[in-house]
Structure formats: C-alpha cells, structure tokens
Simulated scan of single mutants.
Amino acid sequence: MNYKGVLKKMSTENLDTIQYYLDMNIDFLNLNQLLNKTLTFSFVTYECLNCHLEKKIYRQGFCKSCFFETPSAGDWVMRPELSKAHLNIEDRDLAYEKQVQLQPHIIYLANSGSVKVGVTRKSQIPTRWIDQGAHEAIEMVEVPNRYLAGITEVALKEHVSDKTNWRKMLQNDNKDEDLIEWKQRLHSFIPKEVEEYFIENNKETQLNFPVEKYPSKPKSLNLVKTPTYKGKLVGIKGQYLIFEDETVFNVRANEGLVVCITIV
C-alpha cells in the first residue's frame, strides 16, 4: 500500500494504549496497526502548512515568509510570557491572538525521563503530554490567559527544567517521580498574582505508549539528507516513530515535508 501526503503532527487518542493517527490527505493511518510492519519513507518535496506552496520549510512547518507573517508563529507561541492580547495589544493578528491567548491555560509538571514544567491550553490536555512522551503528568495551575501561564513558567523554570531530553524519553530511561510532592515543593515559587489559581488535591495522569522495543542509542532520521528510508516500525512515543534498527523519526519536526509511505 502506498500513501502520499504532507506531514503534520500525529493526532492522538488517549485510550488504555495511546492511539496514533497520521493524516495523509485522503486517508488517516492508524499507526498502531502498522507496528511490526516494514515502512518505506520517501521525501518528495515541500509544502508550507500555511500558504500551501512548494517552498522550502523554514520552521514549524512554515516557509520563511509565512513563519514571520502568520499569527500562529508569533514569538508568544514559544514564549507565552510575551502574550499581550489581555492588554488589547496586537502582535500580528489581534483577533486570532485573543482567541488563542484569552482562554484557560494549564501549567503542568510532566515526567518524560525527568521532571519538567510546561504550559498548554486546557483544551490540549492530555495531548500536550502525549506529544512530549511523558509517562506521567499532573496539572499544577489553571489560569484564564496565556500571559499568566507564561510568567508562572518563567518563575518555575528557575527551579525545574522546561526541556524534554528526547534521547532519555525515547530510551524509556524513566524514574517514577512523586509529582504531587514536586507540585507542593514548587508551590512557593508561583507568582503572587497566580496563587489563587493553584490546583489543590488532584492526581497524576499515567500514559501508556505503543512501544514494543525502545532504542538504546536512538539515531535521528533526516529525510531531506536521506531521502529514502526503510525500516520495521516497533514503537511510537511522543511525536516519534521508532524503528527496529534504532532509527527514530520526529514527525512534528518534519511538518511540511511531502512524503510517500509504502507499507509492506
């Protein structure tokens, strides 16, 4: 079977085992059903996720001009503390920014090999945790806008990492942590204006990924440099496909690439 389409981040469903889906334009592939099958990935061309033109991808699935113009790639996306919609100040498109920024946001702790702090819209729980490959996570604070979430993350990352070590995550080098204890320990570092939004008495969420074999020395696949790759799929974690030869492919990092996938 052959499928051709532009790569976009895998969508997920949090069941007993997380289900992964890849949108290939006219079809959705349930990737869980492809475990232990041999897949061939072939790089065809580029397609910007915003203008849909055949232009080289710059960042986040966008060509260079779209990356610096589209409101969904503003600096506040990666740095929530720069959000200004609550002040009625426009970055690129105030209507869009109000829609995204002025909604409930969660500051959370997640364990994907080590404990980290992060920010996401409430509507993206638990999707955000799944995308980061966290096997356990807990909500810490719920605030009404992205700015408050951002300044809380800035304060907390002085005391806990805000990064995911992708190698440790894929190696399943996990140490179970008491995230409730971590949450209480970090409570005192929350900014005063956010204190009222602290979440009391909630539980950890456990996540189960469809992986049959974890790589001991993961090797990242760059489809632009290696336009054709063939391997047996043995797992999916975070936004990574894991192959038997320890090659790993970050789907999200390759958004905007048009590929052909052959399944044997």
Rank of each mutant, 00 (worst) to 15 (best):
E255I: 07
C66M: 11
T38M: 11
V160T: 05
Y20M: 02
E158L: 08
V154S: 12
Y229D: 09
L7A: 03
K84M: 15
T70K: 13
S220C: 09
T127Y: 06
R128Y: 00
V143R: 01
I107V: 15
G235M: 06
D75H: 12
K9A: 06
I263K: 03
M78F: 12
N254C: 01
M78C: 09
K232N: 12
T164Y: 00
V264H: 13
R185A: 14
Y197W: 08
T228G: 03
M24C: 08
W129A: 04
F28I: 14
D245T: 10
S216T: 15
R252Q: 11
L221D: 12
S114F: 11
Q101I: 00
I57H: 02
M140V: 08
E54V: 08
A110V: 06
K237W: 01
A134E: 02
M78D: 13
A137L: 04
V6E: 00
T247C: 08
V248A: 04
D91N: 13
V258R: 08
K230H: 07
I236N: 01
L207V: 06
Y58H: 14
K116Y: 11
T228K: 15
E195Y: 09
S72A: 12
D27A: 13
E54L: 09
Q132L: 01
K4G: 05
Q103P: 04
Y147K: 07
K230E: 15
D178T: 04
D23C: 05
M10N: 01
D178H: 10
K55N: 12
E200G: 08
D131P: 05
D131F: 01
A73K: 13
N88H: 13
K116D: 05
W129K: 08
L87Y: 06
Y96R: 05
Q60R: 14
S161W: 01
I125V: 15
Y96P: 01
C260E: 14
N208V: 14
A110S: 15
K213V: 12
E153G: 10
G118A: 05
V258L: 08
V154H: 09
I106L: 12
N254E: 09
K157C: 10
R167E: 12
L186W: 03
A253I: 01
C48K: 08
H187T: 13
C51H: 06
T45C: 11
T12I: 15
T45S: 15
I151C: 07
L109C: 10
Y58V: 03
T40M: 04
A95Q: 13
V211I: 14
I130L: 05
V77F: 02
L15M: 12
L49D: 02
P210F: 04
G113H: 03
K219S: 14
N222P: 07
E54P: 08
G256Y: 01
R146E: 03
Y96W: 11
N172E: 05
T120M: 06
K163A: 08
F189D: 11
V115G: 01
A134G: 09
K9F: 02
K225R: 14
L29I: 11
C66R: 02
L148R: 00
H159M: 10
Y46A: 03
P227Q: 11
V141A: 05
I180W: 00
Q171V: 10
K183C: 05
P144W: 00
V117F: 01
P80Y: 07
L53G: 13
N202G: 14
